[in-house]
């Protein structure tokens, strides 16, 4: 079936059409840009929440509980779970869904597992397109769940309206490492497994660190949950909505959508140029010649690279 035929079904809420469109976009097929530019007009309505944190903190369980709650409220929810691809084989073992099995039968809920596919930051390159598609499919809320390490925090922040950081008591040094940048990006902190010893202490530590961060309009919340028993999720949803209201009132909501469009503009331009460059480069006589000379040792690779890029750019103009 062609992508144009899938679009009406997507708008009508057909999960299979949504799923097949996601595949085409994720696989960077030739129709990707066509699809994305058509659905762009339908995006911007979904409330996008990023959920990140160390492995084992209970992100998937929280996602499961929260989505269940939202589904009961009659909201349509999309979930994107990102796991790393193997750098060796390019394959992936995606295991988050195992904790979301109670959601499979909930109407309006759509969960998709994504492999990071070589994206350095850890967030799948396709994640933002998938979020757009879920948005276009009429989801009220889209949750992105990913292990929060390295650059993922920044990527999530760019994508999400609200960023939630999940931690557990007793990580000890874990909280210290949050200082390095991550305190700034989270709007809501969750101390999960709050029935455990040290939960209150972790909450105190977080509050303390937050007090050292420069005050902003939104004072990040610190919440306790016990996701296995579905405790604290209603409060999480209240805080999320509170944050959303603030975004809307302050104009941030629209600004975030403009930022996202800008990011797409920039990144896609880069991609297109690179793609073109690469395609031409591979069959370029000049490159082959340079390669030969580097192989022979008559030229260093740095000089050769400069030479090629300058030559390429000169020929563009």
């Amino acid at each position: 079936m062609s992508w144009t035929e899938l679009l009406p079904a997507l708008r009508a809420g057909d999960p299979l059409a949504l799923s097949r469109l996601i595949s085409r976009v994720e696989n960077q097929g030739s129709e990707k840009v066509q699809i994305m530019k058509t659905v762009f007009a339908w995006t911007g309505k979904a409330y996008i929440v990023g959920l990140t944190g160390p492995p084992g903190a209970g992100k998937s369980t929280i996602t499961n509980g929260l989505v269940e709650l939202l589904a009961e409220k009659g909201l349509k929810v999309g979930v994107v779970c990102v796991d790393p691809s193997s750098p060796f084989s390019g394959g992936a073992f995606l295991g988050d869904r195992i904790r979301m099995t109670s959601l499979d039968a909930k109407p309006g809920v759509f969960i998709r597992s994504l492999a990071s596919r070589g994206s350095l930051g850890g967030l799948s390159a396709a994640a933002k397109d998938v979020v757009q598609l879920l948005d276009a499919a009429g989801k009220d809320v889209v949750l992105i769940e990913t292990v929060g390490m390295g650059q993922v925090g920044d990527e999530i922040k760019k994508l999400a309206d609200t960023t939630v950081l999940v931690t557990v008591p007793g990580l000890g040094d874990g909280i210290q490492t949050f200082k390095a940048g991550i305190m700034e990006i989270a709007d809501i902190f969750i101390v999960n497994k709050a029935e455990r010893e040290g939960a209150d202490e972790t909450v105190r530590d977080l509050e303390m660190m937050l007090s050292e961060v420069e005050p902003k309009k939104w004072r990040p919340r610190v919440l306790k949950t016990c996701a296995l028993r579905k405790e604290g999720l209603e409060e999480l949803w209240e805080s999320l909505q509170e944050h959303r209201r603030l975004l809307e009132q302050s104009g941030q909501w629209m600004a975030q959508r403009r930022n996202r469009a800008n990011t797409i503009l920039l990144e896609n331009s880069k991609e297109h140029v690179l793609e073109k460059f690469q395609r031409e480069l591979e069959k370029d006589e000049l490159l082959l010649g340079m390669r030969r000379r580097v192989d022979e040792g008559s030229l260093d690779p740095y000089t050769a690279a400069l030479f090629i890029s300058e030559y390429f750019l000169a020929n563009r103009t």
């Binding site: 084992g56 796991d83 073992f93 995606l94 295991g95 099995t101 109670s102 016990c226 028993r229």
Partner: peptide, 10 residues
């Protein structure tokens, strides 16, 4: 009462 759990695999 105890909740459900799935083991972390990956």
């Amino acid at each position: 009462e105890f909740g459900l759990w799935q083991f972390p695999l990956a």
